[in-house]
Design a protein around this nucleic acid. Structure first.
Lengths: 336, 336
DNA sequence: CTGTTAGCGCGTTCAA
DNA sequence: TTGAACGCGCTAACAG
């Protein structure tokens, strides 16, 4: 495949392999003249050091892995963008793995990565992940690990998230100030960190504003068809609900679909707000009010922290739990 | 890091390293009893072979690379999904690289990959890519390469695309049948294969239907703000345009934005159709008619073909140029 | 059926 | 300032 290597360069230059190696790595113990000769030939022949050989030698792969539930979701796409930018600048490579919200798949992937293939790993756990041995095994192997967005609260691992609770509080507050009296919270999965925190913010706002009705949570799934069925019967049953707070974008889309179908007017009959990073939310009918997460920055920060751990730099206490605020974009779907 | 290796297993079992290696790889020249012993211990100690060592030895990385212009785009996200599915099933790893539509970056990335880090590469070229030496260098190094979506027409490389010309023809035809007389084509970049082919389909339809006015192409950029400026002055100038055919989703979004801004009614004043894989297009105001590309299947097929090349299987002539049809979803944005 | 030996290509001793 | 030699961990050729 690639038979131009150090040995070949060395022969061509009448030098030893080690001299060539050192010259290319700009070692101080090599004469400038020699360096120039070596580098010139290396460029001329388009020499690229064999990454497996150096990885093997140095126990360093120059590669990180990103494990996410899905990629067809603007939030995770934007995270990838941030990750890739930081990694590319540092000369690192990025492996991507999709769990499809499946704990078994997540476990297999992590198993696969526990062998030096990557120098570090960042993960947003799947919503079916209930046990954490596969993650603990990582910590135990002392392989650098960082959580982002969806974390395992119980594990002592650096994490980068948004201010889910606060943002959810503000979103709920926004609905309340728009005159809503009975707000339903659409949740994706009960034991996901983000669901729990977002729901907490929602509940706090309800309490703070002393709403007569109790909280109203609708547990949804990852399947669009199922969600629509759930929502249809929900709207049948709960006639006096006047607002929907969707924990994730997908659920807002499902809500819009069912509302159009049942001829429920947004924002007249029901107001809708959702966590979402979809730029096109502004083009929806009606434009969807969103809580926009700093996805790109989350990816960027998570990667930066991961590199700090990889490079064995000490993490400041503030760097072990980084929170980057989301911001609310008010649009017609929550207008009075 | 990971100091449990073949040697360690061998010592523990009083076997030679090669026997252990063979046992784990289920070699036929190893007794069942021995295999069982070895495997049991391997599992017990959680042994994972060092990937760099085997890659070095076998000149095989079990890794492929995907090079795309951007990830924050449903088309490419869905492609990634297809790629990842096929790769994961085959036990392969997937490296992702983003060019951000920058030829220089694309060149750097390909340079980086010309050294055995990956067993193969699939790419959708950036829209600023005008010279192809960096790609040719790949072919010359006889590293497996596959194009998808955006190809280099001039290169003899297996390619997986959609039926851009046909789909564009049908989309234009759909507009014509909806009564449009003056259709503008929004193009992303003149020398991109998909732009050229889509424009061709558009022109053919105009000719076929014998439209009095000539074709009308608006060259756009990758920058939203610029595009909006371009579109604003376009609408000022061309008062009798009654339809927009956007070659890529981004341009349809820009069109919607400007139309809302200038109070141009869709579909009353102007009808809009676009290539787009955005599920939420149905929720737009008005719902956007789209040409949906088989993105997942493109990713899947491209990966399947890439693996065939990697595995040195002969490609059938029909496999060297695979076309998977798109389909049109008619919505209100093109209603009479 | 199993062990011995020899690299894969690189970086890093140690010696000169 | 340079070279020779070794070993990272694994697989494959060659014995036995």
């Amino acid at each position: 495949m690639d038979n131009i290597n150090l040995k070949r360069l060395a022969e061509e230059l009448n030098l030893s392999v080690s001299t060539v190696s050192r010259a290319l790595r700009d070692s101080h113990e090599i004469g400038q003249e020699t360096k120039d000769r070596v580098k010139a030939l290396a460029v001329k022949l388009g020499f690229q050091p064999n990454p497996h050989a150096s990885s093997l030698r140095q126990s360093k792969s120059k590669t990180i892995a990103v494990v996410i539930p899905e990629i067809e979701n603007n939030f995770f796409s934007q995270v990838m963008n941030g990750v890739e930018d930081v990694a590319q600048k540092k000369g690192y490579h990025v492996l991507i793995y999709l769990t499809h919200e499946d704990q078994a798949r997540e476990k297999d992937i992590l198993q696969l990565l526990r062998n030096g293939r990557v120098d570090g790993l960042m993960i947003s756990v799947s919503n079916t992940t209930t046990s954490f041995e596969h993650l603990q095994a990582y910590i135990d192997a002392s392989t650098p690990l960082v959580f982002f967005d969806r974390v395992c609260e119980s594990m002592e691992v650096p994490r980068i998230t948004t201010d889910d609770t606060d943002a959810a509080f503000k979103a709920t507050e926004h609905l309340l100030r728009s005159g809503c009296k009975k707000i339903a919270f659409l949740s994706m999965s009960g034991n996901l960190s983000i669901s729990i925190r977002r729901k907490l913010g929602y509940k706090r706002a309800l309490e703070m504003y002393g709403l007569p009705d109790p909280e109203l949570t609708v547990e949804c799934t990852t399947n669009d068809e199922e969600n629509r069925t759930i929502l249809r019967s929900f709207f049948e049953k709960e006639k006096n609900v006047d607002a929907i707070f969707a924990a994730v974008e997908k659920l807002a889309v499902n809500t819009y679909q069912v509302c159009h179908e049942l001829n429920i007017k947004i924002p007249g009959d029901i107001k809708v707000i959702s966590f979402s990073n979809l730029a096109a939310a502004a083009l929806f009918d009606p434009p969807l009010s969103t809580i926009v997460q700093p996805a790109y920055d989350i990816g960027k920060e998570a990667t930066t922290i991961l590199f700090k751990i990889i490079d064995k730099k000490m993490l400041l206490p503030t760097e072990r739990k980084i929170t980057i605020p989301s911001h609310i974009v008010e649009r017609r779907s929550t207008a009075r």
